[in-house]
Design a protein around this nucleic acid. Structure first.
Lengths: 343, 343
DNA sequence: GTTAGCACTCATTGCTTTCGAGTGCTAATG
DNA sequence: CATTAGCACTCGAAAGCAATGAGTGCTAAC
């Protein structure tokens, strides 16, 4: 168990390093106001903290830097979530004001988050599957092409152009759309495929004269993959971090960040609440020298997505955790009141 | 005027440098099969070419690299557009096959282009203003919100959520939409605002009982800015170029490439055909050590947009020019046949 | 238990030296 | 007279080396 003094010193060292990015030496610590001990005392404590695995040296006569274990302890025990009135208000205003489309909120959030922190923000979702179908439209473009439009209760709009057989007649098309809207209104997007394959085709046959393969086209248009939306903000913020002063590291980072699949997988496993993964704690090899903080946001009961911040292990954990917690709560809030009791 | 031999040597030097990125010396040139002269002769010619401004030295005893004037001469006189059967087919297939929406074509083009070249591709457009309105839809989400959807003849879909006064009744909304579709079908997007402000409001007053401010909301939803769409592919390709072996250059590049406004301005001034801007020839300071190749593509008569490739001045001009020319022709072709005679 | 003092370590910086690729010039050559 | 061989010279890059200084660990004194 760590003594009070050790806790204090560990905290001061980590705070200092997070700010300066330079290994911190005993003299610098001893000079701080909160530290009433001499450099020599600090040196002894630092040596102990190193033995315990919380600190490291970059070389035998350098100052100390936090180890990953040190950061872990810091995150778990040493940071009291500080209140960010300023930033909190920015976020609240942004989210409450004037936006009606989910995607705008999300996109904007990613940008604000990366601006406030100078790290890279990643937002996953909304998981469209948990939203419900509001309405379907088909708009003919020419004799052989049309665009299918699908609107969800969250104001999300998907569209896709598709080809239609020339024979089909516009009143038939209209009938089909009517039947679809009738049958599918309020159905979760997740279950669309199911419903499409269930009774709808048979039902259409009754009303639409020459069904042939137009139903297949239509089905194809609506059952396109709904790709998981990924918003990344502040990719180039990393370039400003001193740990990215090396071209190879930059290359590695950009190679990783542009591989969307990997990132989606990374965030998908995220759980309830706020989760901090420091360096090696990350499963994905490409970010084993970075830290990832994730927070889930919700729509009603179903989890909908994840907000994350990616930065160096030397991260402003306190600030980032506060911001993420504010933002995820706000998003959950807005989403809940806005879309919950409408169908 | 350059002699035949000087032309040959200049060409070989530039080709070599484009490939290797290293200053090329007289010995290396003399060894090439096409060169029947000794290194000493080459040295003399190189000195002359340097005096003429086509070559430069990086330091007094280094090999030569092309000057910007050298590249300019090379582009204007020394490259015969080579035939890229392989890549040309890739592009043709990609564009002709299976895509119905303009944006997909454009996006895909940007990606293919950057993959084929290893430079950064930028595609501007389509200039939505030159396309025509196909249909308008309004889909209520809740008592107080709705989403407005606008479809153009190119299959482009814009949508925006907006708030509606609670009093308005859904049959009125329907009437309004009907009137709008009636009046606005086939109208170029550019003229939408004009039409909206002209007779439409008066006309609506006749049919819709309680118009109050719902028309204003509606107008607002449809007259949103239609932002110029910008597609950038292969941003991180630059990291692989040896001229970006320096963190500062990388920072400068990313700062520039993420400033979309500047890029839009850069490409907007582009003219007919293919245009090559080498280094200092560029108006924008941020790319004065890069080269930019732009090509216009069209829909019918109206110019619609610009495809561009951005790379180091040491660029594979021959390949890039061929690719851009193929791609812009294909795009123009597809767009013309697909959307021209439908309205 | 705390601290002052001191020898020791090691990254960083700046200075030389060496090495080699490449040049420019001169003189020889067909 | 154009071409080429030969050679001294230049300069960047890499390697070696000493000086500097921030920081440590340890011991002895308070």
């Amino acid at each position: 168990m760590l003594t009070e003094r050790q806790l204090l010193i560990l905290q001061v060292i980590i705070d200092d390093f997070i700010e300066s990015a330079h290994p911190v030496g005993s003299r610098a610590i001893a000079k701080k106001e909160v530290i009433p001990y001499s450099a020599a005392t600090i040196r002894n404590e630092m040596a102990d903290l190193e033995d315990l695995g919380f600190l490291e040296k970059t070389h035998s006569s350098s100052g100390r830097i936090p180890s990953e274990k040190g950061y872990r302890y810091y995150v778990d025990h040493l940071i009291s979530p500080n209140i960010l009135h300023q930033e909190g208000n920015v976020i609240k205003h942004m989210i409450q004001d004037g936006f009606f489309e989910f995607e705008q909120i999300v996109q904007m959030s990613a940008e604000v988050l990366s601006k406030l922190t100078n790290y890279t923000s990643i937002i996953l979702g909304p998981e469209i599957f948990e939203t419900k179908l509001k309405q379907i439209q088909i708009i003919p473009l020419s004799v052989s092409t049309a665009v299918a439009i699908l609107v969800t209760n969250t104001g999300h709009v998907e569209h896709r152009a598709f080809s239609i057989p020339e024979e089909i007649d516009s009143s038939d098309l209209e009938k089909m759309v009517n039947i679809l809207n009738d049958q599918l209104h309020g159905v979760p997007i997740l279950q669309l495929a199911e419903k499409f394959n269930a009774g709808i085709e048979a039902m259409m046959q009754k009303y639409v004269s020459d069904l042939n393969n137009s139903y297949q086209h239509l089905k194809g248009a609506f059952l396109q993959d709904h790709p998981v939306k990924l918003y990344i903000g502040g990719k180039s913020n990393m370039l400003m971090q001193p740990e990215f002063n090396d071209v190879d590291k930059i290359r590695a980072f950009y190679t990783m960040i542009e591989n969307e699949d990997e990132i989606v997988n990374l965030l998908k496993q995220s759980s309830e609440g706020i989760k901090v993964s420091i360096g090696q704690e990350n499963d994905v090899a490409a970010i084993k020298d970075l830290s990832l903080i994730t927070a889930a946001y919700h729509l009603g009961e179903g989890q909908m997505g994840t907000i994350a911040l990616l930065g160096p292990t030397r991260m402003e954990y306190r600030k980032v955790i506060s911001l993420l917690s504010i933002l995820s709560n706000e998003m959950t809030d807005v989403l809940y009141t806005r879309y919950k009791d409408e169908d």
